[in-house]
Write a protein that binds this DNA or RNA. Structure first.
Length: 274
DNA sequence: AAAAGGCCCTGGTCGC
DNA sequence: TGCGACCAGGGCCTTT
């Protein structure tokens, strides 16, 4: 699934093609994504010029207010979504649900599992109900050990679930939560409040390192992740624990254990992670 | 307020 | 080879 690195790579990939472009229309073949694509989107968006492409957590925010009043296209890739820039004449295929038409080119959303979203927001984007309560951006300076320590006080929830809670920190999905906890040598089951400030510092550093590594690798956490220029070049990252149940820990060779936390698979080394 | 579980969806895998 | 069962997963939403 696209986690934060993949979304950021998508953002960087599409941004140069979008900024300055005039929106000439939309094509919608399936409105039923996570939420319905607004029926009146074409009327609201056609003729607008794109000013910037931003990101908050895993939400891509296409600023369509360059020559008009504020207006934002909010795009979420869910767990199987991808965006590509294509020629206007490229025929949509199965699972291609939405095109943003940009004259001779278009921005196409493909999303087989339809957990993604395309929404329209006028006004203050930061106040949008999906964005208003989001936590810290993990790669920004605001995400510190001190912040995590504060957020974990009085919380009995296992630290892994808290790491995946977007009201604390955004963009850390199941894969990178598992990997970060391994690198920080913290047992994913640890009640959050038990973590000392020092361990919170270690964990925050591990999250940042894990995400930056993935970012540098070009995004890799989904088999069918497609880069925005259409190249298929995904690169299978070597995970430390994710998906490696029963296989030897890369540090101590103890078999990697798996269990369920919050209906998600957790992988960890019971010897290295305490 | 926090925690736990449900739900949306399709493709891939596995056993028969 | 075909088919049904099951699982994966982000994250909002509802229930406890």
């Amino acid at each position: 699934m696209p986690e934060l690195p993949e979304v950021e790579i998508t953002r960087r990939g599409i941004e140069p093609h979008l900024v300055g472009s005039i929106i000439t229309g939309v094509r919608v073949s399936e409105r039923r994504l996570r939420w319905l694509i607004p029926r009146d989107l074409a009327a609201r968006i056609t003729g607008r010029r794109i000013a910037q492409v931003a990101r908050r957590g895993k939400y891509l925010l296409i600023d369509c207010g360059a020559n008009a009043s504020a207006g934002w296209l909010i795009v979420h890739l869910g767990m199987s979504g991808s965006l590509r820039i294509l020629e206007r004449t490229t025929e949509p295929q199965r699972h291609d649900h939405f095109d943003l038409l940009l004259g001779e080119r278009l921005l196409r959303l493909r999303d087989p599992r339809r957990f993604g979203a395309v929404l329209w927001e006028t006004g203050d984007i930061a106040r949008h109900r999906l964005l208003a309560d989001l936590g810290a951006e993990p790669l920004e300076d605001e995400f510190t050990g001190k912040l995590l320590h504060l957020a974990t006080r009085l919380r009995k929830t296992p630290i892994k679930l808290l790491l995946m809670n977007s009201s604390i920190v955004v963009g850390v999905g199941n894969i990178y939560a598992n990997e970060s906890l391994f690198h920080a040598r913290i047992d994913p089951r640890t009640p959050a409040a038990r973590l000392s400030l020092a361990r919170c510092e270690t964990l925050v550093a591990a999250v940042k390192l894990t995400l930056v590594r993935a970012l540098k690798a070009g995004g890799s956490s989904l088999r069918n992740f497609v880069h925005s220029d259409g190249s298929s070049g995904y690169f299978q990252q070597q995970y430390a624990v994710y998906g490696r149940a029963g296989q030897p820990c890369r540090i101590c060779a103890t078999p990697v254990r798996s269990l369920r936390q919050g209906q998600r698979s957790t992988f960890f080394c019971a010897k290295c992670q305490r």
